[in-house]
Amino acid sequence: MNAGSVSRYRHRRLANAMALLLGTLATLFGLFWLVWILWVTVSRGLAAISPALFTQLTPPPPGNGGGLANAFIGSLEVNVIALLAGTPVGIGAGMWLAEYAQRNALGTIIRFLNDILLSAPSIVLGLFVYALVVRPLGHFSALAGGLALALIVLPVVVRTTDEMLRLVPSTMREAALSLGVPQWKVILQILLRSARAGVVTGILLALARISGETAPLLFTSLNNQYWNHDPLKPIATVPVVIFQFAMSPFSGWHALAWAGALVVTLLVFVLGLLSRLLLARSKVIHD
């Protein structure tokens, strides 16, 4: 090797090392902020977590003591309404896409529109349900909150159901159909069953996504300082209470906001981990 090519080689090695260093720094820099957010949430949230958090009502101002019990139950109620409304429709639409419109133009259009719905700003969905449900009823309600979140659940479930059903080997369809099984039975009892883990993954992901949603709820379910079991009345939800308490001047409310933020973040993480575990297992089974 002559001197020129040695220096050229050194230069390339150096560029390689620099690029690696920059990539590492970018990753560490990004992770630093996000770990910081998580660390603050965990440390401040843990300091405020107590049994009262899960048993007592949201306190009135100036916000000493109390808990988030009504907000937890309210979030549960709104999320259940959203899943009940969004999941069956989503699975049905996903089945149509995968089994009746796998390659045709209409299927492509519906998939595109579904992706568009998936990325519509959630606040606009809230505004829509406000006009559709809240104004005709004359007041904010848990039902309206659930419907707004259902519009977020729907496209997520459609997409995962569609993708998971299309992963089922077509030999399975052919085998069942050749035995004279009606197509609806093939889809519901054979294909949907073998794609079950993937479909459940989609539902978990949708649940994770709506658990932290705040903006559409401010237009639909609003908030409630007390217990409410009537789906036609306003209801407290954890994200909205976090927002309300965070923007207040009271330190007791701030502590509850951090506790709520910790619980919601943990829930979202657990749902995310569960869905990936399920997906990993279902992939092994398919292969």
């Binding site: 996000l34 910081w36 957010i37 998580l38 603050v40 949430t41 994770a208 996504r209 658990s211 932290g212 949603e213 705040t214 994200p239 976090i242 927002f243 965070a246 923007m247 701030h254 906001a257 951090w258 933020a261 919601v264 973040t265 979202v268 993480f269 995310g272 981990l273 990936r276």
Partner: peptide, 19 residues
């Protein structure tokens, strides 16, 4: 990284506002 993408925006807001 994927889990971090799912942190609710109200938590980002809370951290931004307070910290």
């Amino acid at each position: 990284v994927e889990l971090l993408a799912s942190v609710p925006s109200v938590v980002f807001g809370l951290w931004g506002y307070v910290v």
